[in-house]
Design a binder for these strands. Structure first.
Length: 830
RNA sequence: GGGCGAGUAGCUCAAUGGUAGAGUACUGCGCUUACAUCGCAGGGGUUACAGGUUCAAAUCCUGUCUCGCCCACCA
């Protein structure tokens, strides 16, 4: 073993050793293992590369998987990737753009083929990166959301919902990019501040054309499609006008004045023109109030025939001309300078034109109820607790889920439109079925065309925990590992993903998908900004692994985190500290040099006060760390292990062990410090120190090559036992170095540390009295050293120290005087 | 705009209502045969601000300020 631990030298070798063992596959684990533990990984996008959030989240999962594996569970951590519709399609489109191509030029079939090629090349990169991090996933079960069997699960789910009447088709307003000729999602929109005008327009009352209500708008051209004017129900100015009608200028259409709580009385005049066809908010109000939808802007951003005299104009031309006409008509009250956020297509920069189109929906009301109940009743526990309320609130106010997307990459809807039927419109009669139907029972058609739409990516990921185990088939895996035990993920996908898995699982399997959910902290950079590639505020975990090693990266991340945190600023200095800690552990091991078969249970008995103290502390730490991992207090557990290993075991016991192994007589002795339970061994109590001291004459301070006396031998056993225990406790956090230490000292044929048994605390050995007595000695030693430092006496220099009278009583413990004198290099004057 | 969280040592974070701790940085000494990625010792905090409850407040309550995260339909 080298003086310093070198991660690069060992990490890949150790990982290979684990993989070769097959123990990542729970079915290959030794022993009976009746209890199951399973985690479905939040599948990263195939376009993704590991970022700090992944590093944190997967470290958390690996800690849990390794912990329960060592606890004797059949632990499954099932890995995989998500096809990630929009994200992946965009990435490939950008690639195409570099070649001067577009997906439209390529055509759907070739484009999809191209995306599959992309997936073959890059799709598993992120999984390889997880291996670098040390993740103990069962790679033999790796899943992908577009696998054939997964696709079957997706279609099964769709058909199920449809047959139950939960899926329907309907109009819906979407963000439409006129140039790309597609609907795009909210996340594909970028916003740009723009200097513009706010136009105030008078809408005269029908029966009193001299009076009017004034509305304010940034988009006067949409007024051609207005079907109402809305005010806030409690707005005193307009209260009496609700229900009256006004005449829409230019179009001379009679439209009602309605009320709606979404209207902000503070904005403009407090009265808003409602254009359900071309505005998101208006569409919602329109739907609620059953307003007519009039399309005045076409998908090409040209005014439609319903725009009357403005038909055929571009949006901007129409706007200018309409403002002119309003002036002429004398209904333009005023125009104001106004800066507003313009929605632009992220890809091409065109202005978004909201459009009504036909989409598919899942009715949420009945699905949401049981999903709320299982969380309310803590059948599924969410950590941190505060997210429970947030989750329930969202589901209580949930709207129907739009599941169709006009993309090419994804699961096409299992909807088959009848082609040769008597129906005039080809899209009116259709069959919903898993496979292409032979005949339509409604219209007798026998030619079909599958829907061009694909499903929202989250529709397929909602099935992840059970589809990956083989659902809808009743597989052995499903029976064995479902429901899963634990889900760890980022808080921002609580709605998008977690909630949807819950109701899907209840709907399809009548089971919860997982027992506990942990929403981990967001990793911020040191300035407190979200780590993001596009902002350039991210750190690359792989570079950190390269620099500090995988263990230090893991430990440093976990060490900075506490369970209920919402976010923390990532500090690279924590990784340096972790690297140093790992090196410390390495060197502790070099000193202790397990040197014997540590796979055997070592029965070390505390013989001295120091022994009793360290053994007591060790057992407390086992107990506490075990509890903390179970309740996801991983940062707290890491800190406790750090402190114990370094500042108790290494700083104190290791130093004392040197004394115990060289001249045991200096050690505080005595039956009083040894718990009764462990004194049954005849070695446990010694009464003839003098004799032993004589025996020790000439013995080197080197435990190798000497015949150890009882105490020295016992000290070695305690060192061994403590180190063995620490390695086990630390293994889930820093698996590589602990396994390497284990391997470099294990006998041939012994187990991997990865599958050794998790330590159990021996509560009989937790001895608070010994701990207190030892604390006194520690404090006294520190006090004397401090005195020496202040007196500028080198610590090594032997000197006399006059004990303060109040401290004399502290020396009642046999041998404690000798220990203090040795540790502080003083001769006590009492 | 709504919801949530956070403001504690120079920096990153801890602390069931009871003497405010750690890592890092800093200062002094030390290459003591596991480790200088180290050891020993030390300095450093009116716990954002203002009130209140209490024998006792970093902690509980109210308000203010600042920052962050999530959600959202400001025409």
């Amino acid at each position: 073993m080298g003086k310093a631990y070198e991660p690069k030298k060992y990490e890949s070798k150790i990982y290979q050793l684990w993989e070769k063992s097959n123990f990542f596959n729970p079915d290959k684990l030794p022993g009976k293992r009746k209890k199951m533990y399973s985690i479905a990984i939040p599948p990263p996008n195939i376009t993704g590369s590991l970022h700090m959030g992944h590093a944190l989240n997967n470290t958390i999962q690996d800690i849990l998987a390794r912990f329960y594996r060592m606890k004797g569970f059949r632990a499954l951590w099932l890995p995989g990737t998500d096809h990630a519709g929009i994200a992946t399609q965009n990435v490939v489109e950008k690639e195409l753009a570099k070649e001067g191509l577009t997906r439209h030029l390529l055509g759907r079939e070739k484009f999809v083929k191209r995306v599959w090629e992309y997936r073959e090349t890059y799709g598993n990169l992120i999984l390889d990166q997880l291996k670098k991090l040390g993740c103990s996933c069962d790679w033999s079960r790796t899943a992908f959301t577009l696998d054939n069997n997964y696709a079957h699960a997706v279609r099964t789910a769709f058909v199920h919902y449809f047959k139950k009447g939960y899926i329907y088709r309907g109009p819906r307003i979407v963000n439409w990019c006129p140039r790309c000729a597609t609907a795009i999602s909210d996340i594909e929109i970028k916003y740009q501040e723009q200097e513009s005008k706010l136009w105030y327009i008078k809408y005269p009352f029908k029966h009193d054309s001299r009076n009017y209500i004034t509305v304010a708008t940034t988009r006067p051209e949409t007024m051609l499609g207005d079907t109402a004017v809305a005010v806030h129900p409690k707005d005193e100015r307009y209260k009496d006008l609700i229900g009256k009608t006004v005449m829409l200028p230019i179009m001379n259409r009679e439209i009602p004045i309605i009320s709606h709580h979404l209207i902000d009385p503070e904005f403009g005049t407090g009265a808003v023109k409602i254009t359900p066809a071309h505005d998101n908010a208006d569409a919602k109000i329109g739907k609620e109030k059953n307003l007519k939808v009039i399309n005045v802007i076409g998908p090409d951003a040209i005014m439609t025939k319903d725009a009357g005299t403005y038909a055929g104009e571009t949006v901007l031309n129409a706007r200018q001309k309409i403002v002119q006409e309003l002036k002429t008509l004398g209904v333009l009250k005023k125009e104001e300078d106004y800066t507003h956020k313009l929605s632009l297509c992220d890809r091409c920069g065109s202005a978004i034109e909201p459009q009504i189109s036909t989409q598919w929906f899942v009715k949420m009301e009945k699905l949401a109820q049981p999903a709320i109940r299982v969380v309310e009743k803590d059948k599924i526990k969410i950590f941190p607790k505060r997210y429970k309320k947030i989750y329930c609130n969202w589901l209580e106010n949930i709207e129907d889920w739009c599941i169709s997307r006009q993309l090419w990459w994804g699961h096409r809807l299992p909807v088959w439109f009848c082609q040769n039927s008597g129906q005039k419109s080809k899209n009116k009669c259709f069959v919903v079925s898993i496979e292409k139907p032979k005949k339509c029972t409604t219209c007798n058609a026998d030619e079909f065309k599958q829907s061009e739409d694909v499903l929202d990516t989250w529709f397929s990921s909602a099935l992840w925990p059970f589809a990956t185990l083989g659902w809808p088939d009743k597989t052995k895996d499903l029976k064995t590992y479902y429901p899963t035990s634990f889900l760890s993920t980022a808080p921002e996908i609580l709605y998008l993903w977690v909630a949807r898995m819950v109701f899907s699982s209840i709907e399809f399997l009548n089971k919860i998908p997982f027992h506990e959910v942990y929403l981990h902290a967001t990793v911020l950079n040191i300035e407190g900004r979200r780590m993001s590639k596009s902002l350039g505020t991210g750190l690359d975990p792989l570079e950190l692994i390269e620099k500090y090693g995988a263990d230090a990266t893991r430990f440093g991340l976990i060490y900075q985190m506490t369970r209920d945190q919402q976010a923390f600023r990532f500090d690279e200095r924590a990784l340096i500290a972790s690297r140093n800690f790992i090196n410390k552990l390495w060197n502790i091991s070099r000193f202790v040099d397990l040197g014997q078969d540590h796979t055997q249970n070592i029965n070390a008995k505390p013989m001295t006060l120091s022994d009793a103290w360290i053994v007591s502390r060790l057992n407390s730490v086992i107990d506490s760390v075990t509890e903390k991992i179970k309740t996801y207090e991983l940062g707290e557990a890491a800190q406790e292990l750090y402190d114990f290993t370094w500042h108790e075991f290494a700083d104190w016991y290791l130093e004392i062990s040197k004394l115990q192994m060289s001249s045991p007589s200096v050690i505080p002795q005595g039956p009083s410090v040894i718990p009764h339970e462990v004194r049954d061994d005849k070695e446990g109590v010694r009464d003839d120190k003098e004799g032993v001291r004589d025996d020790k004459e000439g013995v080197r301070n080197d435990k190798k090559g000497v015949i150890p006396n009882e105490e020295s031998h016992n000290t070695i056993q305690i060192l061994n036992h403590a180190l063995t225990t620490m390695l086990k406790l630390l293994h889930p956090f820093i698996p590589f170095v602990t396994e390497q230490i284990w391997q470099s000292t294990a006998l041939p044929g012994s187990d991997l540390l990865m599958i050794t048994t998790w330590p159990k605390p021996n509560k009989k050995l937790i001895n608070k009295k010994s701990e207190q007595k030892f604390e006194i000695i520690k404090n006294l030693v520190t006090e004397i050293r401090n005195w020496k430092t202040n007196k500028k006496i080198p610590l090594k220099q032997q000197t006399e120290y006059k004990l303060k009278p109040e401290n004399k009583k502290l020396l009642t413990q046999k041998g404690s005087r000798d220990l203090i004198e040795k540790l502080a290099n003083v001769t006590l004057i009492i």
